[in-house]
Amino acid sequence: MEVPKHILITGASRGLGRALAEHFIHRGDFVYGCSRSDQTLDAENYCHFKANISSESDISEMFSKLRKQTKYLDALINNAGIASMNAFALTPLESFTKIFATNVQGTFLCCQKALGLLKKSANPRIINMTTVAVPFQLEGESIYASSKSAVETMTRILAKEYGSFGITCNAIGPSPIATDLIRGVAIDKIQNLVNQQAIKKMATADDVINLADFFLRPESGMISGQIVYLGGVS
């Protein structure tokens, strides 16, 4: 039987983060989740931290509390993210700042603060989240896609820097999934996007969970610095 893992998931209260948290909770792992909202998941093996991922003080406080809960972390899943659709020329600076603060700065801070706990694990893993909006270079998604481009580069460089601690760092780029992140995007736009994929169908949370499971397996210790998109997008 596999030893339960200690896993931190950011943005765990809804969407993909919640689906990932529920999966690992069900599997018997110890899951630590955070979100801006109060705890919405209730399980013996779940611990929630209320934290805004774009706030350095919130993240520092969360990791201080986390170190009192566990001596090590097997995986950090940087799932928290925000998106915004707008024409580049009309995008307010406030949107740019908010998106980069959450998607890039939040991932940066969590990867940095988690190092001490991760390096004490036998098979430490970091999974970051990106998007097919990067390779598709989607119009109207310039700031969101740019932020995820930064996350992809960070993932590849971190794979090298943290490699000496045995930490692998990879990123998952989901193709369109029906989550809050794409609510409000016109159906024909989504369908048009799906039609450009090698596998022309919407993804599900289970597709992301499958890939996360793969990265987290002890046997995946040689896989690092990889950006894997769903739907056959490359």
């Binding site: 520092s60 990791f63 201080s64 170190r67 190092l115 001490g116 390096k119 601690f165």
Partner: peptide, 13 residues
């Protein structure tokens, strides 16, 4: 890096 991270965490605690 690893050594400094451990010290920073002890100080934070």
């Amino acid at each position: 890096v690893s050594f400094l991270v451990d010290i920073e965490e002890s100080l934070q605690d």
